[in-house]
Design a protein around this nucleic acid. Structure first.
Lengths: 205, 205
DNA sequence: AAACAAACCGACCAAGCGGTCGGTTTAAGT
DNA sequence: ACTTAAACCGACCGCTTGGTCGGTTTGTTT
């Protein structure tokens, strides 16, 4: 596509373009030829590097999707500040990125989970693992917040994590469907409202 | 399948089976022949009743999906009681149904939105319409709650609706992926926490 | 029983799919 | 210059897909 991508190893280029198209059109609705056409490469090149379409996809998940989730949703909440602020900013940034991406097709991870759920257990396993990592990091962040006095000691960290993940997955679906900017704003306002209700109350004991 | 379904009009049977398979395996991953095999019918019968696979799907959405959303998510919140209670019970029931369905593949509507988003605008329009109906009903329910003194006058009804829809869509995705019962419980607990934060405070003026 | 249309059958088609394979190009080592 | 192997090409295979169509069955009307 670009001149500076010319030197990128063929395998890498295939994976990047593969993720682009799988994300845009879905796995089953994207053929190997679609990807190869985009890169002016042949079937031979593809099956020289990957043993199957499924294997190709799993490598994409392991390499590119994992990294995306880390940089967008995990690393931003890893500081020592108030977790509620970190999460608020993290979501704010992630959603803002989606708003400004005119070719947004939703949350990569939940899109794929939806597509493979009950259809391909092998791939589902890989996607579930990523989800688990996100969950674990959210939980430990919230627990840290409880310990540091930012979050009410009585709240269930697991519960908060599930609730946050749910709402994020959902808003990303809704933003794709219509009025992303307005929906993002409304979502963030309610998120702050919810956070206010679980932050530690000053008059404790 | 069942003896008592034998009298069901062929068109209806096709739609019911079609929805079953589309929901289970996805639209693109389900062939017309898959549906016909299940019913022991032929291509001729299918294309006598429907002009294309797409047309078939749209009729399924208009007939069956709409009704499902109405009975599961809209009618249960139509009473005159406290909307926060109505919505809580509505979500509780909807999620409990999912928990007890061992063959659960997530929220029909969001699954299809994910599959068709950016790929088939015509179908997307029909799905968006249903989402809009849900949103409108949630908003009016919440506004009623504000008027009747159940919900704090300062909350943004649109915002609450979007937040509720987001979280519901998300938790359905998460429940499909793992531990549905535990996740449902945690979700409902946090939902109640959130609702506590937007209910009308007794000491108002 | 003749007529007729609605409902249904199933062989068929072109196109597209994932995957294979014998052969060619490219580039580095000697 | 020769060898060797990695990288790549593209014709090809078997199979499935959505969709077509000439023909048969079924049920109702007269």
């Amino acid at each position: 596509m670009d001149k500076n991508l010319k030197r990128m190893a063929t395998m890498q280029r295939m994976q990047v373009t593969g993720l682009e198209l799988f994300y845009k059109k879905g796995y089953y609705n994207t053929s190997v030829d679609d990807i190869l056409k985009e890169l002016s490469l042949s079937k031979g090149a593809f099956y020289y590097h990957f043993s199957s379409k499924e294997d190709f996809f799993i490598q994409i998940v392991e390499n590119l999707v994992v990294r995306k989730i880390y940089s967008m949703l995990i690393e931003p909440i890893e500081g020592h500040e108030n977790p509620l602020d970190l999460i608020t900013n993290c979501f704010e940034d992630a959603l803002e990125t989606a708003v400004h991406n005119e070719l947004d097709y939703g949350f990569v991870l939940s899109n794929f989970i939806n597509e493979f759920n009950g259809r391909n257990p092998k791939i589902m396993k890989h996607l579930s693992d990523i989800l688990k990592i996100w969950e674990v990091n959210l939980v430990s962040s919230i627990q840290k917040g409880k310990f540091n006095g930012h979050i009410d000691r009585h709240v269930d960290a697991e519960g908060v994590a599930i609730y946050l993940m749910s709402s994020y997955i959902g808003i990303r679906t809704l933003m794709v469907e219509m009025a992303p900017s307005a929906r993002k704003y409304r979502f963030m306002t309610q998120l702050r409202q919810y956070f206010k209700s679980i932050e530690s109350k000053p008059q404790t004991v």
